[in-house]
Simulated assay, not measured.
Amino acid sequence: MPRYEYRCRTCGDTFELSRPMAESSDPATCPVGHDDTVKLLSAVAVGGSAAPAAPTGGGCCGGGCCG
Rank of each mutant, 00 (worst) to 15 (best):
G47D: 05
G12Y: 01
C30N: 05
C11W: 01
Y4V: 04
A54C: 04
E23S: 06
L41G: 08
T29G: 10
P20S: 05
A28M: 12
P27V: 04
H34L: 11
P55W: 00
P20H: 09
A22R: 04
G33F: 01
S42W: 14
E23P: 03
E23R: 14
D36Q: 14
G48K: 11
C65F: 10
C66A: 13
T56P: 15
K39Q: 11
F15R: 12
G58Y: 07
V38C: 03
H34Q: 05
V46C: 08
A53L: 08
P2G: 12
S24P: 02
S42C: 10
D35F: 06
R7P: 00
P2T: 04
T37D: 00
G58F: 05
T14H: 11
A51C: 10
C61T: 11
R9V: 04
P55D: 13
H34R: 07
C11N: 08
E5Q: 14
T29N: 05
T29E: 06
T56S: 11
C30F: 13
H34K: 05
G63S: 02
V32Q: 12
P20Q: 02
R19G: 07
G47H: 01
G63P: 01
R7W: 00
A54M: 11
G64C: 13
C65G: 15
G67D: 02
V32Y: 05
A45N: 14
T29V: 14
A45I: 12
E16L: 02
A28V: 06
P27H: 00
C66F: 15
G12M: 10
V44D: 07
L40H: 11
C30S: 04
G58P: 13
D26Y: 08
V46P: 04
F15V: 02
G47V: 04
Y4M: 07
D35V: 07
R3A: 12
Y4D: 03
D35E: 08
P52K: 03
P55G: 09
G62I: 03
M1K: 02
G64N: 09
A50T: 07
E16Y: 13
S25I: 12
A51Q: 05
G48T: 09
G47I: 04
A43F: 08
C11E: 13
E5S: 09
C65W: 13
T56D: 14
P52Y: 00
R9Y: 09
L41M: 05
S18P: 14
M1N: 11
F15H: 10
R3V: 12
S42N: 14
A50H: 15
Y6F: 13
R7F: 00
R7D: 02
S24Q: 09
A54V: 03
D13I: 15
A43N: 09
G63E: 08
T37K: 04
T10L: 10
E16A: 12
A51W: 15
E5V: 15
G33E: 08
D36F: 00
P2S: 10
C65M: 10
C61W: 07
M21N: 13
C8E: 01
R7I: 04
G57R: 02
G58M: 05
Y6I: 03
R19M: 02
E5H: 08
S49W: 03
C61V: 13
D36S: 14
